[in-house]
Write a protein that binds this DNA or RNA. Structure first.
Lengths: 325, 325
DNA sequence: ACGCCTACCTGACACGTGCCAGTAGATGAC
DNA sequence: GTCATCTACTGGCACGTGTCAGGTAGGCGT
């Protein structure tokens, strides 16, 4: 009952060799010559005692852990974030490391977290405060911020414009969010939308931002839609920051008795799980979140000095045509 | 440059005291008397060197870490899982520990993960394989399985029945899932549904299970609905395993040209983010995921010998009335 | 018999921390 | 003056691992 877990010393004793030999065998070192008989005895003993090396001790001795910390401070759950985390977990594991997801609550929690666990690298999905960045700096933990992908993050919005124009629309509106934690995604998308409109010489596009959270008010969106449609040159299509915004937009259109897409086209972004189920089903942009995860990991490995600097990332994304445009 | 991070030895040297004194001061031990002057000198030195204790070393010395591992293998829980993880993170942090979320990919990954990080407790949202459980046993890591909440997990489905009956329905159907990883939730809900029907002496309820994933076929659900409606005593209301199933159900009803709720009532479960946005807006059950997190943590603390055995958990949940019933 | 080489293995240190046991000096009681 | 008590501190061990320099035994050539 509850005998303490076995250590390499136990194995050594049982196999009748020294601890050093055990370490050499279990770590498969090729520069040390171990006789096959001894090797087998050690492995056998390890199996019998179901030995698992102590993680803390290893990390202490090695001077660094094999843990990667993903700092996710309230990025709203969606199909994409799940895909992203799964893929990142996979590629990190492929290099003999382990990815841990930490849901940051307050801005001051990082210190106590790092007192419990020392990652060899941190990946942040949101911008960290300067004190947090300083802390990582002090601990000499490299940091990769998803910021770095900015080069391609306006692409999805450009695709929205392109698709709407191909469908015959010219007077467009963009519905975005003013939620702080989403600005990292929202800002480049809005610029991409505006830039694409300008490049195609479209009439001046309309813009509106909804407050954050799930408290998006249907009434407010309905009013916004009504305003856009009552202008002299009424909007004929609305591109949205994400599928959730688009779904609210569809609901608002229904409130106003509008037919989508004939009276108004609505386009989402994310291809979220519910996108095929709205009425009409949402035409949207699918972003390859897994490719994004792989790119972020390439950046991380470069930072760890294990790989070349990756090519600039062009967010792979494509239009998913359904019925709302 | 890039001087190695400072250790307690550095602090001791700088403050002109021994390392033991530093340890006593920084750990705020009250059973050791330290003069205020010395204490201040130590704290000052620690601040100047921005000292952060080494996590690995601490864990090694203490014999156990302050990490709690949440094993989440792809639970597609949507909004609720976010609430759950946030609340669990909060309550775990309140006891001076840190919660890490690990997204298990394959059934064999646990060993390599535990080689990198040794939690003082594991919480599993899905059933673990027996080899995984054995591994935790060997490492003497206590395990809390969300299984344990079974007592209350049939409640949400009972609430669905109750609400449908209050709305005047008697001939009910239940749409559930056959996806393996969801059976933990699906099984008690289905039994709850059937039990509630039996207790209220309703006509024999219908049952159907959809295959898992997001590949739920609208056509298949449409066919099922048609079958239920063509029977001699046609179904008048469908309760669903979750909101996603309910949304598919709404779409299928639209395909058949049915009006919801007059021709058919549809009830979801989860109050997912998109529930207010379906047409008609989904009447559903809201489960208090945060309360669930707190209860799980109470169980965990009991297992750690830090608290009393918590009361049996009655899943706090209530009906969110919208338009689909 | 001697030195040398190789194959195989071991003793001992270091990583950074927490804490027990012990010590030097001051204070007080008789 | 002596002994006990208290304050304020320190020396050193232990946690479990990886690794390096060294050690031993046997074989081989001369």
């Amino acid at each position: 009952m509850a005998k303490p877990r076995s250590t390499s010393t136990d194995i050594a004793r049982r196999a009748g060799v020294s601890r050093a030999t055990v370490s050499y065998v279990l770590n498969g070192r090729t520069d040390q010559s171990i006789s096959p008989a001894t090797r087998e005895r050690v492995l056998q003993a390890a199996r019998e005692l179901s030995y698992v090396p102590n993680a803390a001790s290893r990390a202490l001795r090695a001077g660094e852990s094999r843990l990667v910390l993903l700092i996710n401070s309230g990025v709203p759950w969606s199909t994409n974030i799940t895909d992203f985390e799964d893929e990142l977990t996979r590629v990190v594991a492929a290099t003999g490391r382990t990815l841990m997801v930490w849901r940051r609550q307050g801005p001051d929690d990082l210190a106590s977290t790092l007192a419990h666990l020392e990652p060899c690298l941190a990946i942040a999905l949101n911008r960290l405060s300067s004190s947090e960045a300083a802390l990582l700096e002090t601990l000499q933990i490299p940091l990769v911020e998803s910021d770095l992908v900015a080069p391609g993050s306006d692409l999805p919005a450009r695709l929205q414009v392109q698709h709407l124009v191909e469908a015959g629309h010219e007077r467009l509106a963009y519905l975005t969010t003013s939620e702080e934690s989403l600005q990292r995604f929202a800002t480049p998308r809005t610029s991409g939308f505006l830039a694409a409109c300008a490049e195609l010489a479209l009439p001046k596009p309309r813009l509106a931002a909804l407050p954050g959270g799930m408290d998006i008010s249907l009434a407010a969106v309905t009013e916004q839609l009504r305003a856009w449609l009552e202008e002299p040159d009424p909007v004929t299509a609305v591109a949205c920051f994400n599928d959730f915004h688009a779904a609210v937009c569809l609901a608002a259109a229904a409130e106003l008795g509008l037919w989508v897409p004939s009276d108004l086209a609505v386009m989402g972004l994310d291809d979220d799980i519910f996108a095929p189920l709205t009425r009409p089903a949402l035409t949207t942009i699918r972003i390859d979140a897994k490719a994004f995860a792989r790119h972020l990991w390439d950046l991380a490995r470069h930072q760890l000095g294990e790989g070349p600097e990756p090519e600039p990332f062009l967010q792979p994304s494509h239009v998913v045509v359904r019925a709302s445009v």
